[in-house]
């Protein structure tokens, strides 16, 4: 097995709001191996983004606060690092691609300047050299006439081009880990496919590990090796991607997979949805967070929150129920 680059243990993040404390992430643990692509899926507001922002110390504080846990990157805990220490990791060794390419670029600085910035600060080269490198990077992600477009401003780029530029910026210092937070959600499908191709190609070229956050299970299937399913601030299921699609164990995962449109279904089949609404995270749940929406709910689910337990060698699930029989898990 490849060595671990990132090991997150029992990470919990809370936000203080006027109405009380929001428990956004409640004790999440996972690992990332060198060169591996890990998918994190789940519906909106289930704690996917907060998890990765917490790891990089990018949670706006106040109101946010990482209350417990550790995140070891190559043996060092990112959560206890000083601002200056983690600054050298961000953008250089772990870099991020954000969801909305429209708002994630500074509107008053040129694309070239922004793409060159990580090179300039982390590799200590002159601005001119950094700009040259930025031009090469833009060409690498498939932006035509990359050199000329360095002096363009973000509003002169289309959404897809901006997201490519964002990826170029994230890859500028050849990071060990790329964190992509729903990078294709704001783009239309053809552009999505192009972005995915670029990422796959560069992953194979550069050999970096990727954490890919999305709510699109279709993307994950073609990209990731392993998947974490999150719900209500918990990881509820973790499995290799094929195993997850073939034998989903958590009722929520089953629901998610059931709600995917299928090419081989008849045109009259209605899309299935999961009844109910995502949980309000205002108090730390003592029961299973999915219980109110779960078709298999039992008495125990309402009294005790199931821990994430191994179901198979590489497959873990947090559920009291065996969905095959509808009875308690053995």
């Amino acid at each position: 097995m490849a060595p671990k680059v990132l090991e997150v243990k029992d990470l919990a993040t809370q936000f203080k709001t006027r109405d009380g404390i929001v428990h956004a992430v409640n004790g999440v643990s996972f690992e990332l191996q060198e060169g591996e692509t890990l998918g994190i899926v789940g519906e909106s507001a289930c704690g996917k983004t907060v998890t990765v922002l917490s790891i990089l110390g990018l949670i706006p504080s106040p109101p946010g606060k990482v209350v417990s846990g550790s995140a070891h990157y190559l043996g060092k805990d990112l959560l206890t690092m000083s601002d200056e220490e983690i600054r050298f990791i961000r953008g250089a060794q772990i870099s991020m691609v954000f969801q909305d390419p429209m708002t994630s670029f500074n509107p008053v600085l040129t694309i070239g300047r922004q793409v060159a910035e990580p090179i300039e600060i982390h590799q200590g080269v002159s601005r001119k050299e950094a700009l040259e490198r930025a031009g090469e990077l833009l060409a690498l992600v498939g932006i035509p006439n990359a050199k000329e477009r360095l002096s363009d401003y973000p509003h002169q780029f289309s959404g897809g081009m901006r997201q490519r530029a964002m990826i170029a910026m994230a890859l500028a210092c050849s990071p060990t880990v790329l964190v992509a937070d729903e990078p294709t959600t704001a783009l239309d499908v053809t552009i999505q496919a192009q972005i995915l191709d670029i990422v796959k190609r560069l992953r194979d070229q550069l050999g970096m590990a990727i954490i890919w956050i999305t709510h699109d299970l279709g993307i994950i299937a073609g990209l990731a090796q392993r998947v974490n399913v999150m719900y209500g601030g918990f990881i509820v299921e973790e499995a290799p991607v094929k195993e997850l699609y073939a034998h989903p164990q958590h009722p929520y995962t089953i629901g998610l997979l059931g709600s995917l449109p299928r090419l081989d279904a008849s045109t009259h089949t209605r899309l299935v949805s999961i009844d109910g609404v995502p949980p309000v995270l205002m108090k730390k749940p003592t029961s299973c967070p999915f219980a109110p929406r779960c078709p298999f709910v039992m008495d125990r689910c309402l009294q005790e929150n199931p821990p994430l337990l191994s179901f198979d060698t590489h497959h873990r699930v947090a559920c009291w129920v065996d969905p095959k029989t509808g009875g308690a898990r053995a």
């Binding site: 600054r87 961000r90 953008g91 250089a92 870099s95 708002t103 994630s104 670029f105 500074n106 600060i121």
Partner: peptide, 13 residues
């Protein structure tokens, strides 16, 4: 704004 978060994520001082 998002782009300030981006700037921090780049490791800017």
């Amino acid at each position: 704004e998002d782009y300030i978060r981006t700037a921090r994520a780049k490791g800017l001082m």
